[in-house]
Design a protein around this nucleic acid. Structure first.
Lengths: 199, 199
DNA sequence: TTTCGACCAATTTGGTTTATTGGTCAAAGG
DNA sequence: CCTTTGACCAATAAACCAAATTGGTCGAAA
C-alpha cells in the first residue's frame, strides 16, 4: 500500500513509536503534542514539520497497526486454497486479532465513545479493505465453482453484510468483556455463514 | 408478556403518553419530571407514586413501543409457513421498522451516545426476544427437515450471530443516513444468510 | 388510595478567570 | 536546503464558584 511511505522516514517512525506508546497509555486526549515531542527528545514544533495535525499522527499510528494486522490476515487467507477455508481463516484470524487488541488497547474504548470522529477515516479504509478481501474470496469461489453465481452488486452487498457482522462481533468482543468465542465456535459461525443453515 | 401490566392502569398510561411526547421532542435529559407532570396536569410527586425513577418511565415508554413492534413482527412471522420465509420476513420487517424509527426517533441518537446505560435493560430484553424468535424458526425448520440438524448450543450461537448482524445493520441504518437497503436487497441478504453462498 | 406542596441533596448551569494546548512563524543551526 | 527551535497566538479546557434546577423523599391533606 502507498501508506507504507508514512514510515519511510526514520524520524517519522520515531515520532509514531513515541506517540503510540503514549496513546496506548493515556489515550488520545490526554496525550499532548509536547508529551510526544519530549518522548523523542525534540521540540513540539518539530512534530509539525512531519505531521500537519495531532489527528494525523493518531491516524498514522492506528493505521500502521491495522495494516500490520491486515497483512497477517491476508497472508493467512492466501495460504488456503478453497473459498470456504479462506473465508474461515479470514473470520477466525480477524476476530482473534480483535480479542488480542481488546486487552492491549482497552484505553481506546473511551476514545471510541467520545471521539469517534477520530476513527472515521480509519474505519472507512478498513471497511473497504475487508470488503474487497471478502469479495475476492467470492470471486475465486465462483471461478472454482465452489460458490454460486452472483452478480457484482450481490457480491458487494454480501461482502458489506459480512463486514457488518464481523464488525458487530468485534465490537461486542472489544467492548463487552464477557463475550468470548472459542476457536471452534468461530469456525462453526464462519462455516454456517458460508454454507447456510439449509439441510 | 407480563410487561403489559405497565399500561393496565389508565393513569400510568397517561403518564407514559405524556412522557413519550416529551421524550420524542426533547430527548431524555432535557425532559424533566416536572415537564411530564405539567403535561398531564398533575404534580411531580404524583409521578413517583407510579414510577420509582425517571429512568423507569423512560424504559417503560421505549419498552411499550418495542413490544408493539415485536408483536407486529411476530405476527408477520407467524403467517409464513416455511422457515426460510419466516426468516425472510423477520429480517425485512425488523429492518423496515428501524428505517421508520430512524426518522421518528432521531432525537434519541444523542441519548444513545451519551446515555447508553439507559438502554441496557431494553437492549438485553430485546436481544433475548429476537434470539428466541430466531431459534424458534430454526427449531421449526429442523422439524420440517428444511434446516440441517444442529444442537442447542449451535442454534443459540447462530441466533446470537444473526441478532448481531441485524443489530449491526440496524445501527448503520439508524445512525448513518446514507445507508439504505431496498426490500429486494433485504430479501437477498436474508436468503443468502439462510442458504449460504455455496453453489 | 391518590395527590400535593414543602423540602433536601445532588447535580447542572452560567459566568469568570486561569492554565493548557494545538498550531504558526520567523529565525537560527547544521 | 533540510531540520529544529523558542517565542507567540487563538482557542479550548480546567478550575472555581454562586445560583438555579432537578430527581427524589415525606408528612399531611383530600
Amino acid at each position: 500500500m502507498s501508506n507504507s511511505q508514512i514510515v519511510k522516514d526514520p524520524i517519522r517512525e520515531e515520532i509514531l513509536n513515541g506517540a503510540r506508546e503514549l496513546f496506548e497509555r493515556f489515550g488520545f486526549k490526554k496525550t499532548t503534542m509536547e508529551d510526544i515531542a519530549r518522548q523523542i527528545g525534540k521540540s513540539k514544533s518539530a512534530l509539525y514539520y512531519y505531521y500537519k495535525t495531532k489527528e494525523e499522527i493518531f491516524e498514522a499510528v492506528i493505521l500502521n497497526d491495522i495494516e500490520a494486522s491486515q497483512a497477517k490476515v491476508a497472508d493467512a487467507v492466501k495460504k488456503e486454497s478453497s473459498a470456504l477455508s479462506k473465508f474461515r481463516v479470514l473470520f477466525t484470524s480477524l476476530l482473534e486479532d480483535v480479542k488480542y487488541k481488546a486487552n492491549k488497547f482497552s484505553i481506546f474504548k473511551t476514545d471510541l465513545y467520545e471521539n469517534h470522529f477520530l476513527f472515521e477515516n480509519i474505519v472507512k479504509k478498513r471497511d473497504s479493505y475487508i470488503e474487497e478481501l471478502i469479495k475476492d474470496i467470492l470471486i475465486l469461489g465462483i471461478s472454482q465453482q465452489e460458490v454460486k453465481m452472483m452478480n457484482n452488486a450481490e457480491m458487494s452487498l454480501w461482502a458489506k453484510m459480512m463486514n457488518i457482522t464481523l464488525k458487530g462481533t468485534a465490537n461486542k468482543i472489544f467492548l463487552e468483556d464477557e463475550f468470548n468465542l472459542t476457536n471452534s465456535q468461530l469456525v462453526f459461525i464462519a462455516d454456517t455463514y458460508f454454507n447456510g443453515v439449509r439441510s
